[in-house]
Each structure stands twice: as structure tokens, then as C-alpha cells.
């Protein structure tokens, strides 16, 4: 335990990251470069999010990690254990109890409150990358607020698929200024991006940090005649019966059997504990 500094990173690195975080908070949606460190896990496993979490964590924090909404996947478990080992902080699977939540690809269903921090793992922070490969050019486009290209991407979607088929990493405009990639969360989560908690985004491989302060205005891009729609599967959760949560489709056998369940495992189990039962669910053991 004492072999590591608190939360693994040395204090100089944390200060550097905090400076980037403060700058990001001051300019919502703006990508701040930072000197990403090598972490004891591979790129793509959340190295950006882990560094941000390490920089904001205090010994009093209660830490939660979700991966696609679940607390019990390999990625979530290993990051949670990492901070248990290097910071000795309390951990939880309950959204309501957590003060710092690191996430990959989801926003918890339960509304976050003031005082909580949501840390996103980001693979590709640049929303314009899809059509403009030059980093020099995309930075210029951000600086000069030239975002026509973002609509070209949506135009291509409609031309090709008849509708805006982008269903995750759906681009947003922040406070009427910067266009931002909200990380690969489903577009179902986009309306939740304006929230009471602080949202921090870390991209380890790409060495970028950006942020949304509480109650920031975040608008999903769209066309007048093709307005943004936060879609979800037309189904209720088969375990807890929720009709307002984001669902995962689970194949249950080789005969085409399947069920839809909440992707947010904590949300689902809380509902079941409260007595809600879905079509294929069983009564919770009291």
C-alpha cells in the first residue's frame, strides 16, 4: 500500500492534470491537451479516465465504476480494485452513494446531484476526426467555430440510411460554442448531459481532457426537418419492468430466445428491491 503515492499518480502529475481540468471547466467543451502518463493498464482500458479520477480523488471519496452501465464487468472491476489498492478509498455499486463515478459508455439512469463527479473514459475526443483527419485543421475549425462539417456527417447519415443513424458518440454543442464528442455513450443519454454533477472527460491515448461544469447547456446537433431523437429499444426491462431506461438485449439460448434488461445494473437491482418485476423477472427475495 505504501509503495504507491495516494491514487497511484505522483503529486506533480496530479497538479498538471488538475490544471488541465480547471481550464476545461473554464472553457466547457474545449479539448485541453495534457501530458498523459503511462498507466499500468493498456490504452483503451480507460487510462484517460483513470488519470482524471486519480487527480480528483480524496481519501474521503466513495468510488464507483461502470462499464456499459454494469459494475461487474472485467474493466469495471479491475479499475475499482486498482483504486482500492492504490488509494484505499471506499467503493460502492450504488450510484447514490458514490462521490466519484468513472464510466465507460453510459450515464447512470439515476439523476446525479451536486457534489458528484462523473468521469468519462474517452477513446477519440475529436468529433471532427471522422471527416477531417488533420489535427491542425480541426483545431483551427474549433478555434474559428467552423462546424459545418459536423452537419455533413449527419447529412451523410440521412442520405445513406434515411435517418440520423449515429446512435452513440452523438455530437453536441456546448453553451453555443464548442462542438464536443460526449464519448461513446448512447444518444439516449445525450439529454442527461445537462446535469447537476461535474462531468470530466479523459482521453489517455489522445492526451486530451475536457469538461462540463454543472448545469451546462448541451445541445445535440440535428436538422430542422430531422430533429434529434433520443432512441431506445421499444420494450420494457424484462427484469424490473422499467419503461424509461436504456436496455441491453441479451441472447438467452440458441433458439432465438432473448430478453431486454436495463444496462444500468444498479438502477435495475434497486427497482427490483423496491418490488418492481418485469415480464421475465422473479420476485426479489425480501
Amino acid at each position: 500500500m505504501n509503495a504507491y503515492n495516494f491514487a497511484y499518480l505522483d503529486e506533480q502529475t496530479k497538479r498538471m492534470i488538475r490544471r488541465a481540468l480547471l481550464k476545461g471547466m473554464a472553457i466547457p467543451g474545449y479539448q485541453v491537451p495534457f501530458a498523459s502518463r503511462e498507466m499500468p493498464m493498456p490504452y483503451g482500458w480507460g487510462t484517460g479516465g483513470v488519470q482524471v479520477s486519480a487527480a480528483v480523488m480524496t481519501p474521503e471519496d466513495c468510488f464507483k465504476v461502470i462499464d456499459q452501465g454494469a459494475d461487474d464487468t472485467t474493466n469495471a472491476v479491475s479499475i475499482r480494485r486498482f483504486f482500492q489498492a492504490t488509494a484505499g478509498v471506499a467503493v460502492t455499486e450504488k450510484t447514490a452513494e458514490a462521490t466519484v463515478i468513472q464510466t465507460r459508455h453510459r450515464i447512470p439512469e439515476r439523476d446525479l446531484v451536486e457534489g458528484q463527479i462523473l468521469v468519462y473514459q474517452v477513446p477519440i475526443p475529436e468529433p471532427l476526426r471522422f471527416l477531417e483527419p488533420s489535427e491542425v485543421e480541426t483545431r483551427k475549425m474549433h478555434a474559428l467555430e467552423e462546424y459545418g462539417l459536423m452537419h455533413v456527417k449527419l447529412y451523410e447519415d440521412i442520405a445513406r440510411h434515411g435517418d440520423i443513424s449515429t446512435s452513440y458518440a452523438y455530437p453536441v454543442k456546448v453553451e453555443g460554442r464548442y462542438v464536443m464528442d460526449p464519448s461513446p455513450i448512447p444518444k439516449f443519454d445525450n439529454p442527461k448531459l445537462s446535469m447537476a454533477a461535474i462531468q470530466l472527460f479523459g482521453a489517455g491515448r489522445e492526451q486530451r481532457i475536457y469538461a462540463l461544469p454543472p448545469y451546462t447547456e448541451v445541445v445535440s446537433l440535428d436538422f430542422e426537418d430531422y430533429p434529434f431523437q433520443a432512441g431506445r429499444a421499444d420494450h420494457d426491462c424484462d427484469l424490473c419492468g422499467a419503461d424509461n431506461s436504456y436496455l441491453d438485449e441479451v441472447i438467452t439460448d440458441d433458439a432465438g430466445g432473448r430478453m431486454f434488461v436495463c444496462s444500468d445494473t444498479d438502477f435495475c437491482s434497486e427497482r427490483r428491491e423496491a418490488g418492481h418485476v418485469g415480464a421475465l423477472g422473479v420476485e426479489a427475495v425480501a
Partner: peptide, 9 residues
């Protein structure tokens, strides 16, 4: 067109 603000597909 989109670069100068057109937003009607």
C-alpha cells in the same frame, strides 16, 4: 451551405 448555417436537410 451547412458551413454558413443551413440546417434544413
Amino acid at each position: 451551405l451547412m458551413a454558413v448555417g443551413a440546417q434544413h436537410y
